[in-house]
Simulated assay, not measured.
Amino acid sequence: MIMSGKKDAVLHHIQLIDIHGTRFYDIIFAHIDAPDQARRARIGVDDAYPDPQPGDAISVSYLMNVVTGIARR
């Protein structure tokens, strides 16, 4: 469990979704230290860098084991 902090990862898939006018990204990524273990999260568009793309090297921010945002590495 990641209480808080960041982990390096690779973004595998990203999909923009709209729920009642609020925009989110559904993302699939894998940590660098566990490349065969895909993880899924939903984050707000404001919690990601501009124009995220599959294959991007990212840093995933966590709080209480919940993804709170992504940044380009």
Rank of each mutant, 00 (worst) to 15 (best):
K6A: 07
G21L: 06
Q37F: 04
A38K: 15
A41E: 10
H20R: 11
I14H: 02
R23I: 06
D56F: 01
I14P: 02
D36P: 06
A9K: 02
I19M: 06
I19W: 01
F29S: 03
K7E: 09
R72H: 10
H20F: 05
A71G: 11
G44D: 01
A57N: 14
P52L: 06
V10G: 05
D36S: 15
P35K: 12
D26T: 07
P52M: 08
I32D: 13
G21N: 02
R39C: 05
D47Y: 06
I32L: 08
M64C: 08
I28Q: 15
G44N: 12
I32N: 12
L63P: 00
L16Q: 12
K6L: 00
F29Y: 15
G21R: 03
T22D: 07
D36M: 15
H12V: 08
D46Y: 06
V45P: 00
D46Q: 15
K7D: 04
M3A: 07
V10S: 07
D47P: 01
Y25I: 06
H12D: 05
G55T: 03
Y62A: 04
I19F: 12
H20P: 00
N65Y: 04
L63G: 07
L11M: 09
S61M: 11
D51V: 06
M64N: 15
R39H: 15
L16A: 06
H31S: 09
A38R: 10
I27R: 01
S4W: 13
P50L: 08
I2P: 00
F24L: 13
Y49R: 01
D46P: 00
A57H: 10
V45M: 12
I19V: 14
G5E: 03
Q53S: 13
K6I: 11
G5K: 04
S61V: 02
D47Q: 09
I14E: 06
A9M: 02
I14S: 04
I17W: 00
V67A: 14
D8P: 00
